[in-house]
Design a protein around this nucleic acid. Sequence first.
DNA 1: TTGTATGCGTTATCAA
DNA 2: TTGATAACGCATACAA
Lengths: 339, 339
Amino acid sequence: MTTIKEIARLSGVSRGTVDRVLNNRDGVSEETAERVRTIAKQLGYKPNKAGVALAAQKNKYLIGIIVFSRKNPFFDKVIEGFLERAEELAFFGCEVTVKRVAYHPEAQMSAIEACLDEGVHGIIITPYNDTKVCDKLNEIIDKGIPVITVNSDAENVRRIAYVGSDYYNSGAAAGALMQLMTHDKVNIGVILGDRNILCHSKREAGFIDRLCEDARFDIVSVKENYDDDLKSYDIVSEMLKTHPEINGLYFTAAGVYGGCKAIQESGIGRDIRVITHDDVPTTIDMLDKGIITATICQDPMWQGARSLELMFNYLSSPEEMQIRGYYYAELNIKIRETK
Amino acid sequence: MTTIKEIARLSGVSRGTVDRVLNNRDGVSEETAERVRTIAKQLGYKPNKAGVALAAQKNKYLIGIIVFSRKNPFFDKVIEGFLERAEELAFFGCEVTVKRVAYHPEAQMSAIEACLDEGVHGIIITPYNDTKVCDKLNEIIDKGIPVITVNSDAENVRRIAYVGSDYYNSGAAAGALMQLMTHDKVNIGVILGDRNILCHSKREAGFIDRLCEDARFDIVSVKENYDDDLKSYDIVSEMLKTHPEINGLYFTAAGVYGGCKAIQESGIGRDIRVITHDDVPTTIDMLDKGIITATICQDPMWQGARSLELMFNYLSSPEEMQIRGYYYAELNIKIRETK
DNA sequence: TTGTATGCGTTATCAA
DNA sequence: TTGATAACGCATACAA
């Protein structure tokens, strides 16, 4: 392993000078700089990470993370991903502060304020789609605090990147799965989360666009459950009663457990294919019980880990980072036997 | 962050003594040791990784990795996993030497020898199931060199762990998927890799056990392709000709591309569900073309990363490691829309 | 423009 | 049984 010391010795200058050259600081004559660069390249110099880490220990970057509350267990896994990567990055001077807040613009606003008070250098957020929140985000971005959206994006916010799933595609995948797992005539009921949530309506579009092309399918009912299990229970009960012909159900978002309870009760004796998203514990339970046929997952741990990594890299060396606007999670289909 | 220095100051001893206590070296009076331990626990001391790394830089552990040759692209991803984790562990003194060898006992034997010559401290291997290889492995294990099997296990080898997929389960999952994606009467053809490979026959068993319970299914033909694309092409062509009733195919292992070529030619006009394993580029291609219905993946990158991590932890602190015998990969179903 | 000195946290060596 | 000190590779403040 070549070290700075070694390069200094071979090029006949001091370690300080080598450091200046290698880190593009000024105050070095072009002549010596050139010599040092040549030698460094010859030896294939790579900075030693442990050395860098040790020298940079004084917590350079604090990153604020804002996701939804503990009531939504999906984010448990996202946070696991954050924390796993945070531990790794800790010795490069990365610290995180995690806020889980209610699904409300106000709650998000004050979480953002709290982050600013703590002096964060960047914010990773699952934004509520509300103009006030979006304006606030653009405001802090203008102040020089970069923002990354995770799991759900926000339109017109100048975030440096979005990390999460491609919702239209995941809806289309659900549609394709429904095609593969059914035959003959299929009457579909769709249970949305909330039409005002960008990502939910994209899934709906992907699913419906896919099945529209196929004469086997009829979408006979579409309802919103507002991600609420109780509401979901009522809606699905009602739906199954009003439409005895329904033999396929698609849940675009949360409220899966309540809906499945309804299927257990009102769907007795009917053979209904049920496709959902994500694998929170209650969904796994319903997969086990045979109520859910398949669920499409979006690697929540990866979303947390990747977004933190991106933010940290962006903060520590923005110039040598080419960042894309979108980082899409892999989709992962699970059935009872692969859960 | 509490440091050794801090603990030393508070307990009124030197850093050296604290180090001795915390690392269970002897030469410290029980009295002071106890005091230091108490204070360390109070402060919640955690060794600083960057510090440990820097001090331990002199490549303590060399780990040999032996997997199958470049002809089998599945292992490309496994190796990616190895290298990714290797880079992380590099600054804790982990070095790896990777050998990709032919699917032969002799090739494996000499790869093992080569590793020993290089002075490896542990070996991670996808073993060929052959008594000579197994004996050799037990021999080096007796010499004190731990072995971990990855992707495929070996019976009667005293390896510390197996990291890979649960083949019986993945076969059963393939069976379940076949059930979900078909209706009415289904006549199945099964294309095995090689019956002598433990994992292949386990998949076969899982698949068949699953479908035996279901009167809808008949297994009408089972053939071996010895993981060879040309042989696979011939077998599938023949199979489709002899059994015009076949409408479901299951490939337990490699040779998928050759088999799919045969389906493209001999299966014209027939609606055949095809289920395979893994997502090597040629398989993705056939998924795209609509020949393969679904493929069940086994997270090859994870297999590489996890096995290396296990081995390194075992080497660096065997006493404080409780190791399980089996580490199973998550299964991940892919269809064209989620590839 | 360049060189020197110091510190980051841990481990290891030598001295007491 | 303990303490003092050097070393690991890098960054940086300060001196020349």
